[in-house]
Design a protein around this nucleic acid. Structure first.
Ligand SMILES: [Mn+2]
Ligand SMILES: [Mn+2]
Ligand SMILES: [Zn+2]
Ligand SMILES: [Zn+2]
Lengths: 143, 143
DNA sequence: TAATAATTGAAAATCGTTTTCAATTATTAT
DNA sequence: ATAATAATTGAAAACGATTTTCAATTATTA
């Protein structure tokens, strides 16, 4: 179990959650991936080491991790969910650069939308409270 | 039936689709809304004038309109689909400014991400082929 | 008007996700 | 260590949006 996984486990315990092998393994799978993973992907990975796990436990754990802010939930264009461990300093927001070919995800946080948001507010009268950006492309390995 | 609806209907006919009252009514509903609408929303609106319509016809028509480029499909954070008639010059891409309160959607197209994309390409080696932005906020009426 | 091929709507199927519930397990207090 | 507890688990059923199937209907064309 990696340091990163361990730290999150400790924080969860402080928040009153029990430490179970299922939760540790789910976190490990997330930690060992630089791709976004669907609940089913995670389920299958965990089953390699812990065949008794139920898919429903994966869903429940992901919900906890998401609410606690340790993972990002993406909604793919198909409408399916996918998750990714957050790896940027907490408090900072970030966005995703996604390889259309292999699914690799890289975070970035220099989004600099302040200027655009001001323009839009001036034009439309909307008060803007948040934004999402997603850049789609091909990673070096896939080019 | 509005001009806008009529034009799209004509284009569809040229592409080999039949003109049916269901398709006309679905287009009218889209044309009369400045909010994104779910398939069920559209179904209910159309039923007011044409109670025999089936929800499945709404899904099928939306798929045609989406593929033909007349409407935008949003995937809401919940994973549900919502649709909106495109109102910007074709060929231009655009993005959405969404009121979190009432759902009103306004398009904008001055997204100016070229600089950011260049930075990211330099940093990561990704070749960027497209992007999405969504600005969330409150419209003047909802503030 | 007749022939045709596309379109329609009801019903069933699909599929990701959520709920229910009884059994199990991690934690805490003894 | 043991017992008491409350949380967690997994199987199964339920759910809800979307898709598929198929026979009947309709718009179009000849
Ligand atoms: Mn992220
Ligand atoms: Mn749009
Ligand atoms: Zn790639
Ligand atoms: Zn509003």
């Amino acid at each position: 179990m990696s340091t990163s996984t361990n730290q999150i486990i400790k924080s969860l315990k402080k928040s009153g959650y029990k430490i179970t092998p299922q939760r540790k393994l789910i976190l490990d799978v997330l930690n060992n991936s630089d791709h976004h993973l669907s609940p089913a992907n995670i389920y299958n990975k965990v089953r390699e080491k812990y065949p008794e796990i139920g898919l429903v436990t994966v869903y429940r754990t992901l919900e906890i991790l998401d609410k606690a802010g340790y993972i990002c939930r993406l909604t793919l264009p198909s409408g399916l969910a996918a998750y990714l461990l957050k790896r940027c300093p907490s408090g900072q927001h970030h966005h995703h650069l996604v390889c259309q070919c292999c699914g690799k995800v890289v975070n970035f946080n220099n989004c600099n939308l302040a200027e655009l948001e001001k323009e839009i507010t001036d034009e439309t009268g909307f008060v803007i409270s948040s934004h999402t950006i997603e850049l789609n492309g091909k990673c070096p390995a896939c080019q």
